[in-house]
């Protein structure tokens, strides 16, 4: 119910009002699309954090692997763009399989092992010059195609594609959370030992969450490659693809479904439109401060506080109604 209350208006705003108001403004559409890219990663990050109980500092690795997979497939093997984007998701999942030994590690160890993996992937992308073009990068990556008479290569088209990716990711997240697996994962969060004892294959479930999270991030990375038509290792594996989604997910509340998405829209747009003009150099300072502040003051995010306030408010309203 509460999900529906948030997502119905959100869907209307994103699918109808935003394109209707801003479709003429390429700059703004591009920016909102990029905010949705961040939202996709933030969602994948939160899925791993909330359901799998794992903090990752290495989502840039999945993003970069997805971006390169799709770019190389479309440029060298003439794979259709949309198909390549899906394969890119599998590519990122494959990369996550290589990370699985790290699942034996707990808490901070896992978080930092993933960081090391991300570093390795960036070095590999720089060194494997024959495939990735090395540090010089890949230029003129094909645009999103014309499909069923609609040109997805425009900013508006790109926006619709990424919006659909994020919506699909939300649906997948929701379905996992509602399933038996979701329940087992939730129990695992309370006590992994107890859950293992009743026969839940905890490590397997965590591994599945890692693969799903990587898949989403990989697709988003692939979308970005076709959206901006350029890649180099520094950019594709940039720490920013990890930092901003984490700030967004924490800010919005990474235990909720809508938190990461709303957080990403708010954080990215505020960063680009407000923080950057306030502090042209070092605007990420504010992101760091927001991150630290949220962890200290409200680790479950801003959104839960707002919904709580809203609930309290509406309860008060109900009470008055009964009295009168």
């Amino acid at each position: 119910m509460s999900n529906f209350r948030i997502f119905a208006p959100l869907a209307i705003v994103m699918y109808i009002i935003v394109p209707f108001l801003f479709s003429g403004n390429d700059y703004l559409m591009g920016m909102i699309a990029t905010a949705l890219i961040i939202a996709g990663i933030a969602l994948a990050w939160a899925l791993l954090g909330n359901l799998g109980g794992m903090v990752s500092f290495g989502h840039a690795a999945f993003f970069g692997v997805g971006a390169y997979t799709s770019a190389v497939l479309t440029m060298d093997y003439n794979v259709p763009v949309f198909l390549a984007m899906i394969i890119a998701g599998f590519g990122a999942s494959l990369a996550s399989v290589f990370m699985m030994p790290a699942l034996r590690l707990h808490g901070p160890y896992f978080a930092l092992a993933i960081l090391a993996y991300a570093h390795i992937f960036m070095i590999l992308a720089t060194e494997m010059t024959s495939i990735t073009g090395g540090a010089a990068g890949l230029l003129s990556i094909p645009n999103l195609p014309v499909f069923m008479g609609f040109d997805f290569g425009t900013k508006l088209g790109g926006y619709i594609v990424i919006l659909n990716i994020v919506s699909l990711a939300l649906v997948v997240y929701h379905l996992i959370r509602r399933s038996t697996y979701g329940l087992a994962l939730k129990a695992m969060h309370d006590s992994e030992l107890a859950t293992r004892i009743v026969g839940v294959p905890a490590t397997q479930l965590k591994a599945i969450m890692l693969v799903v999270s990587a898949f989403i991030t990989g697709c988003v990375g692939a979308f970005n490659a076709h959206f901006i038509n350029f890649l180099d290792p520094e950019y594709a594996f940039s720490g920013e693809w990890t930092v901003i989604p984490i700030v967004a997910a924490i800010f919005g509340g990474y235990r909720t479904l809508s938190g990461p998405v709303l957080g990403a829209l708010f954080i990215y747009l505020a960063d680009q439109l407000v923080f950057k003009s306030l502090l042209p150099q070092g605007h990420q300072l504010i992101l760091g401060a927001l991150l630290g502040g949220m962890i200290l003051l409200s680790p479950s995010g801003l959104l839960p506080i707002i919904t709580n306030m809203f609930k309290r408010f509406s309860k008060k309203g109900d009470a008055q109604h009964v009295e009168s």
Partner: peptide
Amino acid sequence: ELNSLILTFGLGIILTNSLLM
């Protein structure tokens, strides 16, 4: 254990960007 990671990560970003400024 986990929240301190995110907190100090944020502090690191603040420090880096202050130095940059």
